[in-house]
Design a protein around this nucleic acid. Sequence first.
DNA 1: GTTTATGCAAATTCTTTGCAATACT
DNA 2: AGTATTGCAAAGAATTTGCATAAAC
Lengths: 138, 138
Amino acid sequence: MADVGNLLKKKSLRKTVTRSKILELMVDESIAMSEREIGEKLDGSFDRVTIYRTLHTFLNNGLVHKVLDGNGGTKYALCQHDCEENGKHHHDHVHFSCQVCKQTHCIEQVQLPSMNLPDGFQVKEVNVLFEGICPNCK
Amino acid sequence: MADVGNLLKKKSLRKTVTRSKILELMVDESIAMSEREIGEKLDGSFDRVTIYRTLHTFLNNGLVHKVLDGNGGTKYALCQHDCEENGKHHHDHVHFSCQVCKQTHCIEQVQLPSMNLPDGFQVKEVNVLFEGICPNCK
DNA sequence: GTTTATGCAAATTCTTTGCAATACT
DNA sequence: AGTATTGCAAAGAATTTGCATAAAC
């Protein structure tokens, strides 16, 4: 089981019940989750505002990243170890959003091909979102 | 200037003032816009509900497509002519969202490379969103 | 003992729904 | 005339803010 306390300590974040539970959940689940999903999986034990604030804190400290869910909603997923490589925090993400079950999976296996933008565009992040039907819903 | 009336007729949609104005705006602007931006550019002359419903109508009839804007918001952009090729409506889009001016540009020049997902994932659409700084904001 | 996080209430914004009035063909 | 669209009011959902209380270091 993941050492959630250590993760928090590394970021100089206070270890609280809320943060630990949310972080544990995100380590356990391999899917990206919205605030609502997180709240439901934690059985309504935390205030929605607290979850929002916790997610923002995690976001600002590079513990999680935003995931596009294809429906205008916002989801969050744990950052992987390599987010911090090369000294800068970066996210070249590939996600798959199922149109049936609405779950968003992080696809780690896919290597993002390089794409060249027209001159003048300075790229900081790349998000790739596939939408379709996941193996479970077929 | 674009023959907006013809676009509507091709889809068997009634030609109304709201639809024509919104469609003209989207033809003129090359960027993807949210309901709010559309409303503002049209100077508040239309009810927000009407704009939402118009966008849904356009979406259902393949005149526009949704664009991810990187902040959980939803934007819309005109479909290009080739959306309908091969008999099915598809959107393999590349967009660039500027973190400074928040504008979302459609990048037509970039050819989407093929990416292979793990077995079992049935892909219907692919969205690629670059985030960074656009030429105007540099 | 300070500083930071939490919970509650309430405000904002985004989006949808119902219904009567209006515009389109 | 008949059907689809619009505007208004209002509901619902997502997200943010202020402030007093409680927890962490």
